[in-house]
Amino acid sequence: MTNERAIIAIPMGDAAGIGPEITVKSLAKQEIYDACKPLIVGDAKIIEKAIEVTDVKLSVRIVTSPAEGKYEFGTVDVLDLNNIDLSTWEAGQVSAQCGQASFEYIKKSVELAKAGEVAALATTPINKESLKAANVPYIGHTEMLEDLGNTPDPLTMFQVHDLRIFFLTRHVSVKEAIDQMTKERVRDYLNRCDKALQRLGLENRKLAVAGLNPHSGENGLFGREELDEIAPGVEAARADGIDAHGPVPADSVFFQALHGKYDAVLSLYHDQGHIAAKMTDFHRTISITNGLPFLRTSVDHGTAFDIAWKNIASSVSMEECIKLAATYAPKFTADSI
């Protein structure tokens, strides 16, 4: 393994939101440059404006390829797509031009990653309404990356400190989520989670599945989902060679994983895992999209139009996002999940 710093592409996000601010605030930290070679993919005019608003001591250096970057602290290397018209740009507003531009930053970053010119993507917030205004045919990053990376059903993992959380179900009602908790799905996801951790460089992977009902159902006293679907799914995964455990009561499993008993937890529904991660450390909860042919980390917050361009937004999440990409990049294997 080489000690060479990895090049991390940072698509600037929606130019009207907090993405440019938190990016330049992050790159004003020496520790980011100690960890990696950060490359902004965006609009140089907006980055210069963000530097002015945040009053960080940085200068912009425009490059046409990652290989041209100097990656020296104090200078930000920007692959300039020059796609924002400042005469019509407005801070904190839904905008078709910003929606279109944010998609172009992602598209270019993915092209660089697929070509091996950057080691990973660390993405900033984009805005669904701006994407819609631009007639971009995606509602968010996941859908873009699924298409651009030719990866159906990518797998999301949260990491906060040493706690890693996968999600069996996504944005559906709790009732629908329960209907999706089949033994076949649990088995499939445990296999996918194990493979995702392997791609990130983890060995001897130990996975837990959170319980659904209080005390994981108390052997059927509080519901049969654990007995009929979840536990059989865990056993099927164990038969596949996965070191899977559970269902473990949800009121303790996340704490146990945070303190090293498990390498990751499979959360059964959206809020179960989100609450655990964000109560552990809201600003340092980072999302990793697994299954892509490249590594991608992301902040877990939005464009925050209400505070954008006021030098209010914290860059902690963005800093953690970049550092996590730098941590996993040397270990990441790009084979298909």
Rank of each mutant, 00 (worst) to 15 (best):
C193Y: 12
K132A: 15
D179V: 13
I10V: 13
V24T: 04
I312H: 15
P125E: 07
L268R: 12
A115L: 11
C98D: 00
I106Y: 07
M181I: 13
K70T: 13
L131T: 04
A313T: 09
G302K: 08
D240R: 06
Y262E: 02
L292Y: 04
E31H: 13
G273R: 00
Y71C: 00
T297R: 04
P330R: 02
A28L: 07
V299G: 01
K49L: 14
A231R: 15
K45G: 14
L268C: 13
A67F: 12
I106S: 03
D85K: 13
F254V: 09
D194H: 15
K132C: 10
R284V: 07
T285S: 15
S315R: 11
A236C: 08
I178E: 10
S102Y: 05
D55N: 11
S336M: 13
R205S: 11
E203T: 15
I47S: 05
A257K: 05
V186G: 06
E203W: 12
D240S: 11
R199N: 12
E72P: 10
F305C: 07
L197N: 10
D77W: 06
N219P: 01
M181G: 10
L163Q: 05
M1V: 12
I126L: 11
G19T: 09
V53I: 12
P11K: 02
E226R: 05
E21H: 04
E319T: 11
D188I: 11
I51A: 08
P293M: 07
N127T: 09
K37W: 10
H141A: 04
A115M: 07
I32G: 01
Y328K: 04
D300F: 07
A244L: 05
I178T: 13
L112Y: 13
V316S: 14
A237I: 02
K114Y: 10
E104C: 10
T289H: 03
E68G: 08
A115F: 06
I165D: 02
A329Y: 02
Y71S: 00
M279Q: 11
F103P: 00
I18P: 05
Y71I: 00
E229T: 06
G74E: 01
T88P: 14
E111F: 13
W309G: 02
Y262S: 00
S216E: 05
S26D: 06
L266D: 07
A239V: 12
S267Y: 09
K108N: 09
F158L: 15
E52R: 14
S87M: 09
P125A: 12
G149P: 03
T123W: 09
Q30G: 09
L190R: 04
M279H: 15
V24Q: 00
L81H: 07
L58H: 04
V265I: 14
E90G: 04
P125F: 08
L79K: 03
E320T: 14
S109K: 03
K114V: 14
V60G: 09
I139L: 12
L197P: 09
W89Y: 14
A236G: 10
L131F: 10
E48L: 09
T2S: 15
L121P: 01
V160P: 02
T289E: 07
D14H: 02
L112T: 00
A115Y: 09
P293R: 01
D34H: 15
S252G: 08
V110L: 02
L190W: 08
F255Q: 11
T23H: 08
D335L: 13
